[in-house]
Design a protein around this nucleic acid. Sequence first.
DNA 1: ACCGTCATTGAAAACGTTTACTGTGTGTTT
DNA 2: AAACACACAGTAAACGTTTTCAATGACGGT
Lengths: 328, 328
Amino acid sequence: MSVAVTIRDVARQAQVSVATVSRALTSPDLVRATTRERVLAVAADLGYQPNLAARGLITGKTGNIGIVVPDLNNPFFTGVLKGVQNQARMASHAVFVADSDEDPAAEEQLVRAMAKQVDGVILCSPGIDEQQVRELADATTLVLLNRRMRGVPAALMNSGSGMRQVVDHLVALGHHRIAFLNGPRTSWSNKERRRGLRIAVQRHDVDLVDMGPFPPRYEGGLQAADLAMAEKVTAIVAYNDIMALGVLARLRDRGVRVPEDVSLTGFDDLMFGALCQPPLTTVAMPVVPAGRLAVDLLLDRLANRDAEVRQDELDTQLIVRATTAPPA
Amino acid sequence: MSVAVTIRDVARQAQVSVATVSRALTSPDLVRATTRERVLAVAADLGYQPNLAARGLITGKTGNIGIVVPDLNNPFFTGVLKGVQNQARMASHAVFVADSDEDPAAEEQLVRAMAKQVDGVILCSPGIDEQQVRELADATTLVLLNRRMRGVPAALMNSGSGMRQVVDHLVALGHHRIAFLNGPRTSWSNKERRRGLRIAVQRHDVDLVDMGPFPPRYEGGLQAADLAMAEKVTAIVAYNDIMALGVLARLRDRGVRVPEDVSLTGFDDLMFGALCQPPLTTVAMPVVPAGRLAVDLLLDRLANRDAEVRQDELDTQLIVRATTAPPA
DNA sequence: ACCGTCATTGAAAACGTTTACTGTGTGTTT
DNA sequence: AAACACACAGTAAACGTTTTCAATGACGGT
């Protein structure tokens, strides 16, 4: 455990005042070149790293950003986290992460706890209610991810467009009766996907069977599969990949062939969709870019607090693999 | 954006000195009950939250812990992260996370950058070399995850025991010639798994074909599958689940049936191993508990710096699913 | 009545920075 | 030659806490 080297140590060894050291490091143009170099050399030599806490105390900026997600085991959120991490590093910011275990109450508390230690927080919370989000936006600088709300900056993914691509694809294959397996009704994502789907469907001659809600997990898919088959649909659009995998497993157990007997699509493009058999047709969500974008929006907002509120939308992309085909 | 309320505001409103407020919050028994209550009431009323940075400045403790992982997209590490997050929250610590993108150089730099802002860091770094880890251990309080090193606390998972269970299982099924597909040679995990395998194999009459190294990913499995089949083995033990999935896909494409023609095992028990077809026999790593344990070890060490170095080991568990069967 | 103990509080120093404010000297303009 | 601007560097105040030290008063024992 090496003892901490402070700005004072550097100052002494470089024969200057602490102010000069500080300036040499943070506003180089304020000190003469020769002095600056001497200071920097000493600093490097001693392995000096400024104490961010002390700096933050006076500047009011911590150089940290926070992100709270509902579940770190969900690849969707870790993708986002990866993007956040990455972009934050580029801007030499550190990242606080908190996992709420899908508990909206915890989410609110976590954001508040973070608020003191970060310049702003990125909130991935499909569940928490609008009123509370607004209060949080008051308490700290907030950026929402994959959720739109008036007056709050947001990094969005255009799932409507993804759903349109799905429908166009299925219709082109000749499907006329399609089931949608809803995820949680209250989730912003589900609303968006459902909305996109309905709009897309209206442009074609297609029956949409709106089913659920189901838990957005493997088990939800197992349960939904039989219900969907009973509706005599020729294609099933699942709320997300994990559910689709559940559907796939249940259909296989029942001897229903995919895509020969029924087509199936997922949403999110989690890695294992590509690895399973047959590989899953799905919509790729730009999660990592979205994480990046969220950081940009946050930093942007911090830089000039009274610019217009940006809500940027990233495009999604249909990935056609092997679970979709013309109906029998 | 609410203005920050400081300890001074509380002091003024409660008609006491700042010292008393501080005491009321951090060492309640030092102030008279009636005063304490008044202070606490005012604090709650104003929504006062102490500024951790300022506190840290004087106490030397930040109340934060850091974790650096090679890849946030790898479920193994996010499992650990989840455990860390969880346990840290219990101890009211916040968590810094950094993703090194598998770059050992970045890992070192990230740990150093974190060092100033955290009380200690948990390092999940199979790759970084021992000398550097030692230097880092000097710079901050370090706990290693899934890697053993003299003098450094570590949260370990007993992969040796997992490998023994795999071998016993395969031998019981009647296998005599088994391939092991190595992951990266330098990785501590690979060494451990390989060591466990070799020891287990010696107790039986079994030929072990030691192959690789292969990249520990899907593509590595694709590549390894053909090589392993050429060795006329009846069972393949892959370094991890992702590789095993690659093997599975390649074998299916070649028309080799699993488990009828060849048995296959993975390692890690990532979720999708259970979801694929056929479900993968593998070894479950207690990743979340390991994350928890790491936090405990870290906090322990911080509490009394000169206690003995703990290196605790968690048990692994063979999960028999459908990719293993008696040889043809 | 005096002394010592103890509980309770306040004043002020410290933590490691940044940043106004001040003070030098140098060069340029008149 | 005087005046002035300016580049550079130092002094000290601030940021929001915790903690040492000292002060006050109450109380019990002699």
